[in-house]
Every structure is written in structure tokens, then in C-alpha cells.
């Protein structure tokens, strides 16, 4: 029986990791599902869904030589997963400001209390080392729409965080 696993792979970045990883999985009889790769602070990171007949130990053995060779940390989780179950976001929230401790916790905390479901989050520290700025883009689903969230986020604006709410309406044509 085919089972889904979530693979988390982290290591020092270098060209060719995705190719070697996907080649190893392919030759090992895995189907790949959804994946997301990011280079964070110069490190390679990827999370990807792989489907295979084998158990988790066999998958570990399959990946061990590559992990050793490229010095990658590989973490495996058996997951319940479905494809074709995307949820469409209806709101984008763009957050920016001078970087300081607690921005993410404050913003996401306020969003969670207002019932907002984060579907995609991307953040970066830009600016300069002396004056870092923080930028975060969150796409998600607000069950009560943008207006309900405005009230929840208003106190944060007073602390000097710039917040922009953009309704998303996916065009189907």
C-alpha cells in the first residue's frame, strides 16, 4: 500500500541538492507530491511529500548515503495526506517595519485570535545590518473578511508596524 511521508531536508546550500534528492527518491520508487524549497540564511531547506510502498526505515536507508555525502539533515514523518485539497486564500497581509523582537508573535497572535487561517507565510529581514527591516507576507483565509481583521490589527499599527490588507479574489476563467 502506498503511504505518504513528509521529508524535511536541511543543510548548507550548494547547487544540485534538489536534483540529487529527487533522483534518489525516483530511483527508490517514490512519487513526489507538493514541495516547497527555500534558501533561508544561506541554508538549503525543503519540505516535500513523497509517496512509497516502503516503510519509514527503508526510506531512511534510501536517503542515508546522500545525506552523508552532502551533509544534509533528513527528517521523516509518516503523514496522512491528500492531494487536490487546496484552500484558496481570500486575504493577503503585508507586514513591514523596523526589525524588533516580537513582531511575528504579535501579528500572528492577533490574526489567530480573530480566526484567521494562515495558508502561506513568507518573511525576510532586509535593510542593512545596522538598520534591519522586517518584511512578512501572509496569505490566508479570513472567514469574516478583511474588515473584521482591521479591528484586530489596529492596536499593532500604533506600535509602528505597517500592515496592509489586500483582499484576494482568485479569477476563474
Amino acid at each position: 500500500m502506498k503511504r505518504w511521508y513528509m521529508l524535511t531536508v536541511v543543510g548548507a546550500d550548494r547547487p544540485g541538492i534538489v536534483a540529487r534528492l529527487s533522483e534518489t527518491l525516483y530511483h527508490g520508487g517514490c512519487n513526489l507530491g507538493e514541495a516547497s524549497m527555500a534558501r533561508l540564511g544561506g541554508n538549503f531547506s525543503i519540505m516535500l511529500m513523497a509517496q512509497t510502498d516502503t516503510d519509514i526505515e527503508a526510506l531512511r536507508l534510501l536517503l542515508a548515503p546522500l545525506a552523508r555525502e552532502l551533509n544534509l539533515h533528513v527528517h521523516l514523518d509518516r503523514i496522512e495526506a491528500q492531494l487536490h485539497e487546496h484552500v484558496e486564500p481570500n486575504l493577503r497581509i503585508t507586514v513591514s517595519g523596523a526589525d524588533r523582537a516580537g513582531i511575528v508573535a504579535e501579528v500572528t497572535g492577533a490574526l489567530a485570535r480573530a480566526g484567521f487561517n494562515i495558508l502561506d507565510l513568507y518573511s525576510d529581514v532586509a535593510g542593512t545590518a545596522a538598520k534591519p527591516i522586517y518584511v512578512m507576507i501572509i496569505d490566508g483565509f479570513a472567514p469574516q473578511g478583511a474588515e473584521a481583521l482591521e479591528a484586530a490589527l489596529a492596536p499593532l499599527r500604533k506600535t509602528g508596524v505597517d500592515l496592509r490588507l489586500t483582499p484576494l479574489d482568485t479569477l476563474i476563467g
Binding site: H86, E88, L168, T170, I172, G173
Partner: peptide, 13 residues
Amino acid sequence: VGREGCLSVPDFT
């Protein structure tokens, strides 16, 4: 920039 999907490309936006 805006989000699009298509009847001819189900489940992808």
C-alpha cells in the same frame, strides 16, 4: 499582479 485560476486547469492557482 493578481491571482488566477482556470476551468481548464483545475485545482491550481
